[in-house]
Each structure stands twice: as C-alpha cells, then as structure tokens.
Design a protein around this nucleic acid. Sequence first.
DNA 1: GGTAGACTATGACGGCCGTTATAGCCAGAG
DNA 2: CTCTGGCTATAACGGCCGTCATAGTCTACC
Lengths: 194, 194
Amino acid sequence: MAERRTPSRERIVAGAADMISRRGLSATSIREMAKHAKAPLGSTYHYFPEGKQQLATEAVRYTGEWVARSLRKELESGPVEGLRAFLALWRKIVVESDFHAGCPVLAVAVEEPPADEVPPALAAAADVFAQWETLLAASLREHGAEAEQAAQLATLVVAAVEGTVAMCRAKRSAQPLDDTAEQLRALVVGAIKR
Amino acid sequence: MAERRTPSRERIVAGAADMISRRGLSATSIREMAKHAKAPLGSTYHYFPEGKQQLATEAVRYTGEWVARSLRKELESGPVEGLRAFLALWRKIVVESDFHAGCPVLAVAVEEPPADEVPPALAAAADVFAQWETLLAASLREHGAEAEQAAQLATLVVAAVEGTVAMCRAKRSAQPLDDTAEQLRALVVGAIKR
DNA sequence: GGTAGACTATGACGGCCGTTATAGCCAGAG
DNA sequence: CTCTGGCTATAACGGCCGTCATAGTCTACC
C-alpha cells in the first residue's frame, strides 16, 4: 500500500539532504524542500508527520547509508583504496556544486540542541559518523593495524574529511582536500604496513 | 571619539561569535544577539550598519584573531606544544559548554553563498583558516619540516580539528578530540624530526 | 459501482525575521 | 547655556517561518 513505490518520498529526502548540505538545516525551509522535490507542501507533512526534525533525521540517515555503501564496496580493495574513494566522493560533491554543497551530516551536527534534549537529527548524525568510523577501523584492523591505532585513525579520517570539505567551500578551492588526501594516505599506508 | 572605549560594541561581537558557534549563523537572529549582549537592537544597527553580514564577519574575524594570538604564543615553544594548545583550546570550549558550542568560523563556512557572490563573512572564514594554517606551517618549517609537507600538515591539522569539534558535539563526547590529538601529535613529531 | 485510504490542494494561524524610520536622550565641547 | 552628535527607545514594514485543518481528488481493490 504505502510502500509499493513512492519515488516521491525518497525524492523529498534526497532533495532535503542536498539542500541541508548547502544552506544548513535552519536556513532550509520545508516549503523550499517541497518545491525542490516538486512535491506539494502537504505531502511533506503526510510522509513526515513529525515535521522538519523527522525530515532532517531521514536526510542524515539517507546520506549516511549512501556513503557507507560506497565505503563498504571500495574498502574491499583495502583501506588505502577505501580512503581514496571516500575523499573522491566528497571532492566530487564539492567541486561539481561549484563549492556550494558540503556534507549534510556536518551541517546538522553544527546546530545547537535546544535546552537539554538531543534532537533525533543530531543523534542520527552521531550514528552516521560512528558508522563510517567503524567501517574504516575494521578494514584497517583487517590489514594489520593495531586496534586502538585503527580506531583513532578512523576517527581522524572522518573528522578531517568533514572539516576539509567545509574548508574547501570557504576557500572556494579543492586544494585543501588534495592536501589532506596526501597526508591521510601516507598515514594509512604507515598504519597497515608494520 | 568612536574608538575611545566602547565595551558595548566588542561585547556584541564576542556574544555574536558565541551564539553563532552554537546555533549557526542563520539560526541566530540579530535581536537575540543584541539581547545576549544586553544591548538594544538599535545599537547593533548603529555599530554595524551593514547588518547581519557585517556582524557575522566581525565575529569570525574576532574569533580568528583570538585563536591566532593563542596559537602564536604557544608556538614559541615549538609545533608540538602549539598543536597541544590548539587542541586544548577547542576541547575546553566544547566541554565547558556541555557540547553546545563549537567554532563560529566553521559555522559560517557551512552556509551557502547566495547565487554567485561571496558574502564577506565567508571570505573572512577562509582568511581565518588560512591564517591559522600559515602560523602552523611556519612553525613546522622552522623546526625542520620540508615546505610542502609543512603546508599540507598544517591544512590537515586545522581541518581535522574543525571536523573533530563538530563530531564531539554530535556524539556528546570529547573522545574524538583526544583520539585525533594523539594521531596528529605523532604526525607532527614525525614531520619535524628528520 | 462503490468505497476506503493514500495523496494533494488550499488557506489559514501566530510568530519571528532583517531592516528601516523617527524621535528622544544625554554627555561633552564651545 | 547651547548645541552637536553618539547612542537609545519604540514602533512599524513586508515577508517567510513551522505547523495544522479541511476539503478535495484519484486509484486500487471488493
């Protein structure tokens, strides 16, 4: 019934992820997300009854899963290849959007939780980061890296890539991504060959 | 006349930087910034006639200079000590705000420039990143690192710290900062001892 | 053919946004 | 004392925000 084929719902989520990655969460209105996905405003509240927070949460998870899929596949060729693909993926997004788009997960992570509760979208962002780190760390361990070193390095890689993507947008240049790519590559090579 | 002593103006800028680092630029209203600095709304438009963009730009520059001062001082004891202080500075902000505050420069970098122009606040963010990198790279070179290596490593450090700070907020944990700290430290030590 | 339920269309609600205008205050210079 | 000019107070402007309600439409199954 509801899940037969609803390309509209997924289009909204994907579009929301794209817009959030460009403008940030609070600068992206539900009306704009609907229009961007060529969906009526009423539909967004039909598919996402909990409103903006739910849509943001799903956008984060959508991006997380999309990147994780690519990561899993490329890591089959080893950590170095996985890292290369991870960096290439973000480089493509940044460059092809003419330095307008970035990572929606980071965009959501950079907004204050109201008072003392943790909004679901922020929790989803934490999960996505952890997921990417887990994938990288596992591959590193499988290729000979010591456990703690693998975990730390995985964290560094994810954080560095996120930070570098944002930096590239500010500088309107892909140079930072190429610089950190080289540094991280050497680091990964050193970590698995010992 | 205007610059004799106007603590009010600086209070507004400092408060704006803090609020932007928590909620992001577009989620922070001028009214709130004024109230947070206990200044009347009219005063913000008196001190910053170009409105929100100008205030954001000054907040970014203010933070940039503040961090650069600390960085310059600590780098006198060498790159390793400078890196340690850099990380400690952000760790303090993140932890003491109970994972609510981050870096206002990153917050500004993560908002889409409208159409094809570059807002001054975004340009300021790029400048601040470059400034921090320059300081680190110079210190690395002075301590024996090769020029290109120094530049790349400096970029990695700044980007990684920015990304890690955001990650800590999402995870509500300082662990990522401690992890990347260790990795970066080893990297810096290796780069200057050769 | 009828009926249920997924989706859409439309419009309204109060509220906050950035910005501007205008008039008033009040210290310090002459 | 007067007057100037930095600063404040107050109110208003149009506009977009998130959300909700209600009445439709249309499709798929009985």
